[in-house]
């Protein structure tokens, strides 16, 4: 009985680390990668473009600029949005935002407030990755 219990504990631990391919990353010919949450994504084609709709986010790619797309466990692409408002402009109020450093290490989470224009205090100057509502942004703390 003890062996079986230990076995299931190890199994649950393993399962917690088993990675789902939760993101679809699209790579363009210039090497830039952009990620969206995979489940719920719908892709259509027309007028020489590929239209990617994921949640409230819609991205258009010129088909001639596309190189490949793949599933990934972590978002490897970033929306190149750096604004004076710290990259928060595009995130709706009330959204939970995860913050990662450029090494991909999580540094915290917060809920975006209405009118919030900067990241919470305490972050050192630098570039951070923000993840909210299935879309990933890059943000700068000056």
């Amino acid at each position: 009985m003890r062996k079986i219990t230990l076995f299931f504990v190890l199994l649950i631990g393993f399962g917690a680390h088993a990675q789902s391919l939760d993101y679809l990353t699209i790579r363009t010919t210039d090497g830039v990668e952009k990620s969206v949450t995979a489940v719920g994504t719908e892709i259509t084609f027309g007028d020489g473009n590929m239209y990617v709709k994921s949640g409230t986010d819609e991205i258009t790619f010129n088909f001639n600029d596309l190189s490949a797309m793949f599933f990934a466990a972590e978002p490897t692409g970033l929306r190149n949005v750096i604004s004076d408002q710290g990259g928060l402009a595009d995130i709706p109020a009330g959204s939970m935002v995860q913050v990662f450093n450029m090494a991909g290490k999580p540094v915290g989470t917060f809920r975006k407030q209405a009118g919030q224009q900067s990241l919470p205090a305490g972050l050192q100057k630098g570039v951070y990755i923000l993840k909210a509502n299935g879309v990933t942004f890059k943000s700068l703390v000056r």
Partner: peptide, 28 residues
Amino acid sequence: LLASAQTLNVVQGNVTHAYSATGSDMTF
């Protein structure tokens, strides 16, 4: 059971090809 699944469905009219998500490149 613990690892969740993703499926990529390529819809062509009344026929769909359903692929289990992998990390392999889908190339254009």
